[in-house]
Every structure is written in structure tokens, then in C-alpha cells.
């Protein structure tokens, strides 16, 4: 009798665990849907919603330069989804994209670098990272996965911000885009959920001598201007990396861009492979779940 109870309890526990495992993204989904709703509402009619969402913008600016009625899929373009003048410039540059050579260089690295093909047999994986590695108990970004792969085959890790790393990631992004892949970040366990929550906290916490959070500029501040530049929304922020930035005159990874944001906030930038950075990117990428992979791309 007692053996039957033990068996039944064990089975019930397994069933509950399996069901619970499927529910680790409940809060993240709630956050993501609320973010989508917020962004769609904000950009539904910027002129009409000026008082609530664009208090510092002029009527003329909202009428002439900010596109309204934005839907979820359009946010994949970042600020070019709503910035009409910026979009026109972006479209012009995109006619002769400056990152094309980098994709070719990335393909050569993929085929010619020891171990890479074995670690990433399918190169169309840009939308799956960052992911939570249950064995390591930590978030793995595409950048850290590539460097781990290099180290495992006895090679030196690459610079996580530019150069070969950005080129190989450009190839991965290009192949993912070509295959029609979407951002698909998963939260498979309690530990992954905790990493997501820490990343979320990092994103929304005010830091640095300017006391700015990422959200100040990219959630509440999205669509507002800093000098002549419009700030991009969190929704769709990670989909197009690596990017060729005119300011950099070259290609850079998401980690490189985040380091720049940290500096702008007035704090010592976090290292690309640090848990802080990896968890931040985990949260950010989850927010873009369902959007198509759109990299590599161009940004100012």
C-alpha cells in the first residue's frame, strides 16, 4: 500500500514538475505582451497622444516625421520603423549595404575555423541566442558560445566586440534571416527564470552618474529625441545585430553597443562575457520573441 502511495506521489511530482517547467516563461510572456501593447499604443497616433507619450515633441515633428499606426512586426526596424527621415536615409544606404563583405568573411570563418562547424552545424541559429545552459547554470550568448567553442578546440577567444566575432555573427544572422527564422528565446527552468528576472532588473534599474536606466531611453523615451537622434524602442532592439554603425565605421556586436550605452549612462561598462551583460541580453532578446531575425543591418 505504502509503495503504491510513494509511486503515485512520485508520478504526481514528475507530472507537476513537467507542467511547471512549461510555465517558467509565464511572467516573461506577461512582460513581453505588455511591452508590445505599450509600444503599439504609443505609436498608434503620436500626435493625438502627445501629452502622454511625446511631451517634448512639437506638433510639426510628430505630424511630419513620426509614423503612426505601428504594428508589432514593424518594430523589427528599430527607430526606422517610425522615424520617416531616418528611414529614407537608411533605405538609401541599404541599397549598397556596407556589411556585405563582412558576411562573406563570416562564411569563410565558418568554413575555415577549426571547430566552428562542429559546434554550430546549422548556421541559422541567430534567433535562438541567448539561451540558458542548464549544465553550466548560466546564460550563454552567441558571442560567448563562439568563444567557448574556440577555447574547446584549443584556440584563443576572439574580441567579443568586433572583427572576426562580428563577421561570423553577421553570417549567422544572414543565414537566419534567409531561412525566415524568428527570435525564439526560451526560459526552460527556474534558474533560467531567475536569470531573466535579473536581466529585467538590470534593464529597468537607474544607474551611473546620470542615473539613467536602459528603459528611460528605450521604453518611456522611445521615439523621443536626444539632439537629432531618435531613441529606438526595446521591442526589436536585438533583432538586427551585428550592425554596421556609421559612427564605428565598421561592424560591431550587440555587446559592443551595450558597452556604449553603459558609458552613456555614466558607469564603467560591463564586460561582454559578464553574467550581468549576458542576463541583460537574455531579457532584451526575450522581449523581441516572435519578430524575424533581421541582421546584419546598418545604424548611425
Amino acid at each position: 500500500m505504502s509503495a503504491t502511495i510513494v509511486k503515485a506521489s512520485a508520478l504526481a511530482l514528475i507530472a507537476v514538475s513537467v507542467l511547471a517547467a512549461g510555465g517558467h516563461n509565464v511572467q516573461a510572456e506577461k512582460d513581453r505582451k505588455a511591452l508590445v501593447a505599450y509600444m503599439e499604443k504609443k505609436f498608434a497616433n503620436p500626435l493625438k497622444n502627445r501629452a502622454q507619450f511625446f511631451p517634448y515633441s512639437t506638433d510639426k515633428e510628430l505630424k511630419e516625421n513620426i509614423k503612426g499606426d505601428l504594428k508589432f512586426e514593424e518594430f523589427v526596424l528599430g527607430s526606422y520603423a517610425f522615424n520617416k527621415q531616418g528611414r529614407a536615409q537608411y533605405d538609401e544606404i541599404a541599397e549598397m549595404p556596407p556589411y556585405e563583405d563582412a558576411i562573406d568573411a563570416g562564411e569563410e570563418l565558418y568554413n575555415g575555423t577549426k571547430g566552428i562547424k562542429k559546434c554550430f552545424p546549422d548556421p541559422a541559429i541567430a534567433g535562438e541566442y541567448p539561451k540558458f545552459d542548464e549544465k553550466k547554470g548560466e546564460v550563454v550568448t552567441l558571442t560567448s558560445a563562439i568563444n567557448d567553442c574556440l577555447k574547446a578546440s584549443g584556440q584563443k577567444p576572439w574580441n567579443a566586440k568586433k572583427g572576426k566575432m562580428a563577421e561570423l555573427e553577421a553570417y549567422f544572422a544572414y543565414r537566419s534571416k534567409e531561412a525566415g527564422k524568428k527570435v525564439d528565446i526560451r526560459i526552460p527552468s527556474q534558474a533560467a527564470q531567475e536569470a531573466y528576472e535579473r536581466g529585467k532588473k538590470n534593464y529597468y534599474s537607474q544607474r551611473g552618474y546620470l542615473k539613467l536606466s536602459c528603459a528611460n531611453c528605450h521604453v518611456q523615451g522611445a521615439g523621443q529625441r536626444v539632439r537629432a537622434e531618435y531613441m529606438s524602442p526595446l521591442l526589436g532592439q536585438t533583432t538586427h545585430f551585428p550592425v554596421y554603425r556609421l559612427k564605428w565605421e565598421g561592424l560591431g556586436t550587440l555587446e559592443r553597443r551595450m558597452g556604449g550605452c553603459n558609458k552613456d549612462q555614466g558607469e564603467n561598462p560591463h564586460k561582454p562575457g559578464s553574467p550581468w551583460m549576458k542576463e541583460l541580453l537574455y531579457f532584451m532578446a526575450y522581449m523581441s520573441n516572435g519578430l524575424p531575425v533581421d541582421g546584419p543591418d546598418i545604424r548611425k
Binding site: K30, D31, A34, L35, Y38, K201, Y204, V219, Q220
Partner: peptide, 13 residues
């Protein structure tokens, strides 16, 4: 304070 900025949590719109 961080939750006050999260849409759908502390930040209503």
C-alpha cells in the same frame, strides 16, 4: 523603483 518603469507592472499606460 525599477518595477515602476515596467509596462504592465508598475507602469500603467
Amino acid at each position: 523603483t525599477y518595477r515602476l518603469a515596467i509596462p504592465g507592472d508598475g507602469y500603467s499606460f
